[in-house]
Design a protein around this nucleic acid. Structure first.
Length: 875
DNA sequence: TAATAGAGAATTTTT
DNA sequence: TTCTCTATTA
């Protein structure tokens, strides 16, 4: 009937070698005994999670407890015991990286590449695969395009303008995130609850419906649709769903705490039959609530799947005792946790270090120096002391991966273990300080918001400390790459109107608003694509002059490039050198074609002529793009791949300090971690608390937990008393999370400059500090130095006012959107730019102010100060 | 139509 | 402060 039977047969064949191997493992070893090397080194909890194959399982895996190991071992176990063939396992992750890693590790465990696991991938990748097969059931063609946020916003903007809404006040981006929110909750336009109908000036639902219609017309869908279409297809086609329920005999889900409602429904549909679903996650690491993740999914698991087996992985192999205890102390402030007690068999290690600084630049300067000291110390020891508890398997794994650890250890594991013990006993005997050497690779700085990176980048550039930034604008999101890809898209699918709009006047062809409107009209009145409309405009001379000429060149060019893709054709154009003497077109590889497109369209020249400092980099990126094409069969394949794989793995091997956001750090680990900027308002982020109240604060706290638990050996938390926020100096208060750190596991460092900074890791407590017994941590850190100033004290005295400080208060206070604003109607306020005014209206953190001089404005509360409040400039 | 000067805004971002 | 977007000017 439909084609999917065949393709699955094909996949089964493709994966048969793995299956055969797995099956032969089974016959040779039997189900009970025999070698099962993939179980080596697993602890009892992990073994339990591996062996409990049937029925629902929730694997609660704390940070650093070896969840990926357990998960991959589980897959290996499923395969080698013959419970499932590779193509019968559905294993979903959130990132391509996680999927890749899982694939590699399963392959490693089974001693053969796991190519035969067609259903191991991200939610989105798996949905694309399903949707391409059954596109017609969702009203799409199987070659539908996937829009990214950029395309999405362009489209929405058009709809907003068409609906005669002021897109200034109601920006497309805002509508986009509203719609994404609905899609995350699996709400189609007809299902949006009445409570949400006020969204986007009461036009949100209407525009959402229009947007969906447009997408179907364009044969396109956005990321959210990938899930929703599949859900709808399953709901409307019972037999098809049943088919897949049988096929996917075992389901595994990674990072379950990050699933949104749509993903949850999707999983529930597929697992409804056999209920062989194993979800792995950690409610304490749920940090994507703002993007639709529902912690509730993991909290509710046992109710959703009655009889679910819950396995807790609590033995931590990553961090030292002090670090674990500090992290645990912080996360205890959250309510409604499933609860886990992390423990380690390793050493206590060094306490979490806490230090305050005068300002952000000072903080960056200090961190830079610390890192340099760490490198200097590194040279003094042949082997770095490893105070963590590392399982033998983990160690072997690392050595085989050629990872950071193996670089420091020559010889086999036994030798390194001996060497490590030697250093330890020496340290004990002679009272030597613990070695604190780290390679640059082993150090990471984790910030709350990306703008915090700047101070560090500036500083590191100044002192010549190599660093790398993780995150930020990704390769495939860069303007020049997206432009180039739009050209490729036009060549591959000439009907791609969004791509056409992007490139029609890039580079500048003298085709401005007016000309483009003419094209739009022409296309619409003839019911054809924009490209076809443009061709008509050229033919009918609807667009004349310079623009018309340029447009003709573009239209002809696109046609010519398209012919090169589809095969030899007798046509003579500017690419004469590609024409054989008999008139046939020489074979052009897709890589060459890409170059031709970029050159002949004038796009390369456009950047060559650009004299801005970015231009050379952009040309470089274009070169890289063309190079990336080499590993694909054709342009189509490449575009398909890129629409889902947006990450860019840099193959940069030089040791560098890593700089990234806390969000980006989830799942990673580093021997030494710096956590700067622990100041109320910055971390926890004011906005998060304003928008989501106690929920937001708890998510911030989980972020703190994630940050601390990234550290293996040394974790340094810092804050600054002053920070420049958007060019204005602001005094900052230490984060409430600092007060939540258990004192027994924290060492307050003496700030540099005063009390003799030794350049070492742990200067002893200052006299001032020692007299401060009983005072809380940030006071101790602060008073040890410059914070013991009149201005600082005034700030401390003031802090009760805004209810920002007391942790007990933080935990109990119920913050709702209205109450959280420090201002209420009628308050006199001061704004840096607009001067004095009166609060007229409060909506969450946004306030309408009638300014005395500047008139009425909408302002975010953060930019306001209560008039007469002198707390804004304490120094 | 293209360049440019001011206004206005300003987390986190797996796909 | 720094970026983006829009209204103005050439």
């Amino acid at each position: 009937m439909s084609s999917y039977d065949d393709s699955d047969a094909f996949e089964a064949a493709a994966s048969s070698s793995l299956a055969a191997r797995a099956m032969s493992a089974r016959t040779s070893s039997g189900l009970t005994g025999g070698p099962q090397p993939y179980l080596d080194g697993l602890n009892p909890a992990q073994l339990e999670a591996v062996h409990q194959l049937d029925g629902p399982v929730l694997m609660l895996a704390g940070a650093g407890t070896g969840k990926t190991r357990a998960l991959t071992a589980r897959i290996a176990h499923l395969l080698s015991t013959g419970h499932a063939r590779p193509n019968e396992i559905l294993a979903v992750t959130f990132t391509n990286k996680a999927a890749r890693e899982m694939k590699n590790r399963v392959g490693h465990l089974l001693g053969q590449p796991a190519e035969g696991m067609p259903w191991l991938g991200t939610f989105h990748a798996i949905c694309v695969k399903l949707l391409r097969r059954h596109a017609e059931l969702a009203g799409l063609k199987s070659n539908f395009t996937i829009l990214d946020t950029d395309d999405q916003n362009r489209l929405l903007k058009q709809l907003i303008i068409a609906a005669e809404i002021d897109d200034k006040r109601w920006p497309a981006r805002a509508l986009g995130s509203i719609i994404d929110g609905w899609k995350n909750r699996a709400l189609t336009p007809d299902k949006v609850p009445t409570a949400d109908h006020g969204a986007f000036n009461h036009r949100g639902v209407e525009l959402y419906a229009q947007y969906q219609t447009r997408l179907t017309e364009l044969n396109a869908c956005d990321f959210g649709d990938l899930l929703l279409h599949v859900i709808r297809i399953f709901q409307e086609n019972e037999d098809l769903l049943a088919q897949y329920q049988r096929w996917f005999r075992y389901i595994l889900v990674d990072e379950y705490q990050d699933t949104n409602v749509a993903q949850y429904l999707w999983l529930r549909l597929l697992a409804a039959g056999h209920k062989n679903i194993c979800c792995v996650g950690d409610d304490d690491q749920s940090i994507y609530g703002w993007r639709g993740a529902e912690v509730g999914n993991i909290l509710r698991f046992e109710k959703d799947f009655p009889g679910a087996k819950v396995v807790r992985l609590e033995q931590n192999y990553r961090s030292t005792g002090h670090i674990l205890a500090a992290a645990s102390g912080v996360i205890e402030g959250n309510k409604g946790r499933l609860g886990k007690t992390l423990w380690t068999a390793g050493e206590d290690g060094e306490k979490v270090r806490l230090i305050g600084h005068w300002d952000g630049d000072e903080e960056a300067r200090w961190v830079g120096e610390e890192i340099e000291d760490m490198q200097a110390a590194r040279g003094r020891y042949k082997y770095r002391v490893n105070v963590r508890s590392v399982s033998p398997q983990q160690e072997a794994e690392r050595l085989s991966k050629g990872g950071a650890v193996s670089k420091h250890r020559e010889g086999d594991i036994h030798q390194t273990t001996l060497a490590r013990e030697q250093v330890f006993s020496d340290a004990g005997k002679d009272n030597l300080p613990l070695p604190q050497g780290f390679e640059l690779d082993e150090v990471a700085i984790l910030v709350r918001a990306s703008h915090q990176m700047r101070a560090f980048e500036d500083r590191f550039l100044t002192i010549g400390l190599p660093y790398r930034v993780i995150g930020g604008p990704r390769f495939y999101e860069r303007m020049e790459i997206r432009d180039a890809m739009a050209y490729f898209r036009m060549v591959v699918s000439p009907d791609d109107d969004l791509a056409f709009e992007r490139i029609v006047n890039t580079p500048k062809r003298g085709l401005g608003d007016k000309a483009q409107q003419t094209i739009q009209r022409m296309a619409r009145s003839n019911g054809v694509s924009l490209l076809e409309g443009a061709r008509l405009c050229v033919e009918t001379q609807a667009i004349g002059g310079k623009g018309g000429k340029e447009l003709r060149v573009l239209v002809d060019g696109l046609a010519r490039w398209r012919q090169m893709i589809t095969g030899p054709l007798r046509q003579v154009g500017p690419t004469d050198d590609l024409i054989e003497e008999d008139g046939a077109i020489k074979g052009v590889s897709h890589v060459e074609l890409a170059e031709i497109i970029l050159d002949e369209s004038g796009y390369t020249a456009h950047w060559q002529n650009d004299k801005t400092p970015e231009a050379p980099g952009r040309l470089e990126n274009l070169k890289e793009l063309v190079k990336a094409l080499e590993s694909f069969e054709n342009l189509q394949g490449f575009l398909e791949h890129v629409s889902l794989i947006m990450d860019n793995e840099s193959d940069d091997q030089d040791p560098k300090v890593t700089l990234m956001t806390l969000h980006a750090a989830k799942g990673l680990e580093f021997p030494a971690i710096f956590l700067p900027g622990w100041e109320d308002g910055l971390f926890p982020s004011q906005r998060s608390m304003d928008e989501s109240g106690i929920t937001g604060l708890e998510e911030e706290r989980r972020l703190a937990y994630v940050g601390i638990t990234r550290a293996e050996e040394v974790c340094t938390i810092s804050f600054a008393g002053n920070r420049r926020v958007y060019g204005q100096w602001q005094s900052q208060m230490p984060s409430r999370f600092i007060d939540e750190l258990p004192e027994a596991h924290v060492e307050v460092l003496t700030p540099p400059g005063l009390y003799g900074h030794q350049g070492g890791m742990s200067a002893s407590a200052s006299p001032v500090e020692q007299t401060m017994a009983g005072s809380n941590l940030h006071e101790r850190a602060a008073r040890a130095d410059v914070y013991n100033s009149p201005g600082w004290r005034r700030l401390q005295a003031n802090q009760g006012q805004r209810g920002l400080r007391q942790p007990s208060e933080a935990k109990t206070m119920t913050i709702d959107a209205e109450a959280v604003s420090a201002f209420s109607i009628g308050d006199r306020v001061f704004h840096q730019k607009f001067g004095y005014g009166e609060v007229m209206h409060v909506e969450g953190d946004k306030l309408a102010i009638e300014f005395d001089k500047a008139g009425s404005k909408h302002v975010v509360g953060r930019f306001l100060v209560a008039a007469g409040d002198s707390g804004d400039v304490p120094f």
